[in-house]
Amino acid sequence: MAAEERRDASPDDEQLLRRAAAGEERAFALLLRRHLPAVLALAERLLGSRAEAEDVAQETFLRLWRKAPSWRADGPPLAAWLHRVALSQCHRAWRRLGRQTEAPTAEPPDPAPLPPEQAQRAEEARRLRAALAELPLRQRAALALFYDQQLGVREIAESLGIGVHAAESLLARARRRLARRLSEEER
């Protein structure tokens, strides 16, 4: 078992995808463990709802399972492909939710009083969620990939399927707009 774990710890995404394409569920489970946290965090940041984010993550990985047999190694890296699919699923979810300013399914505030630190964190999260909801989805995605996932501009460009200069410009616009929204809310 330990030897099997060691063997499974090293394979790269391409190898795991080939094994998954042959129907090996264990290889797919390793891919899930590797990429699910990032996909889920991206979707949750974009939609502001854990439940919606879980649905998006599930659909994204089901698509990967179906795509595995025809996966092309010369295409975008797996992480970028997953981000693109997740983003398109978020677009659909956003349209379905009716583009509300504040995500409708955001967790309701806990009626019990929180310790000051947690209360401040919850308030900051609420402010950020509200300000992000004012931004177009692509700008939100650029910010989430940059700040949450610490990706460089080149990787953000790959994940959004745009050029590097376009990604730089998108990120700069998103940051300016978010900073403005947050400072407006503070006033």
């Binding site: 569920e25 489970a29 889920l40 993550a57």
Partner: peptide, 16 residues
């Protein structure tokens, strides 16, 4: 305010 990775195992199992 980074979303915390909770209940990942449950979601993994759901997807599988």
């Amino acid at each position: 305010t980074r979303p915390e990775p909770q209940r990942l195992h449950a979601l993994e199992a759901r997807i599988l």
